[in-house]
Design a protein around this nucleic acid. Sequence first.
DNA 1: GCCGAACCGTAACGTACGGTACGGCAGGAT
DNA 2: ATCCTGCCGTACCGTACGTTACGGTTCGGC
Lengths: 217, 217
Amino acid sequence: MEREADWTERQRDVLDAVLALLVQSGDAVTMTAVARRASCSKETLYKWFGDRDGLLTAAVQRQASRVHIANAEAGGLDASSLKMHLTDYAASWLRVISGPRSVALNRVAISHAGSERSRLGAIVLENGRFALGRRMKPMLEAGRAGGLLSFADAEAAFQTFFGLVARDVQIRLLLGDRIDMTEDRIARDAASAVDQFLALFGTASRVANHKDQPREG
Amino acid sequence: MEREADWTERQRDVLDAVLALLVQSGDAVTMTAVARRASCSKETLYKWFGDRDGLLTAAVQRQASRVHIANAEAGGLDASSLKMHLTDYAASWLRVISGPRSVALNRVAISHAGSERSRLGAIVLENGRFALGRRMKPMLEAGRAGGLLSFADAEAAFQTFFGLVARDVQIRLLLGDRIDMTEDRIARDAASAVDQFLALFGTASRVANHKDQPREG
DNA sequence: GCCGAACCGTAACGTACGGTACGGCAGGAT
DNA sequence: ATCCTGCCGTACCGTACGTTACGGTTCGGC
């Protein structure tokens, strides 16, 4: 197993072929199919990636390196820009988890999560849910420092945000339920999740169409 | 494939062996291993369940028939009993999704969700997430009729409840993250999820201290 | 022009597993 | 006692796939 994601152009093409097959055929991606699709020999696959697990791991890392979650500088700290940034995070995350590549990747990582040998689950988790948490926490804490948010534990607040955004969408998609996550629906879901999050953790008393919001120091 | 879950005692034992192997070995449950574990012949397996997919499907249905989510009559409609029932639902659901059988079942269903042939995903979804929704909606609507809750769409309200309860727990468990969902943590998570749900959809303005929840494991 | 390295295409090997066939045994019915 | 049914245990078959091996081709360096 080579180091990180410093693959050559050609190797990256091969990994993209793996991802394409993963989306198309699920876990039935065989070494022969990859070799044919990528127009390379199986010998090269083994030389480059060691074995099938190494190939899948590299493909997962390649996709993870491409998933770019909205990154907002904690610059503007007024209420409206905070809300905007939160909405960006929410929409970005919904776009990621509803994309066919993400669904396929999570499926293969989950199906390999049982055996101790495979690190696919940890990689997906690290570059997905935990990366999002790392990026959001500073913003949440800046919001708290600026008096816009109120919470005791940033991790817990983030988990609530996560739940409000993801709801049942990801598990339904993973289990094969057909959900059409249009860009329109993503925008609406993100907006309402942020409204609910601010209703729970915001300190300002404005709040949108949700009648009642808890206030308490 | 026989009809529903009218298996004999012996057949149910076989399905339990499948579930045990599923928990223990992930998707690596082979027909030979099932036969050995259940002390039956492969020929019998094929006669009873048709093929491997039929066996897995039957095992999933067997487990589904055992999972029973807290069922509350919409009798008492005062605020405290509504809250209690919601907490029961939340805790029950957390218990289900964090159980090793549920994790193993969801894993195999998800890993088979790619191919059009398998109905495992639909079965798990139908007996899990959708069953919970069906049981909760009448209670939510009774709460609204009684003036305790306020929402426009019961389905959307349920999805929010679902998100507040599940948060990132299920996806992390599915991806192999070690989380120790003790009965204590289940109770605390359920209580805080219900607090947040009532803060968003409740009509009474009291609301407890929802400020913090437990952190991750 | 020659050499070696890298790589392609394909054939071959070993194995694991789904599915089938068969012999044997227990027990109930006749 | 005999037969039939249902099942166990096991050997067996075909295939798919991971992995390896090998001949042929391209290409950069000398």
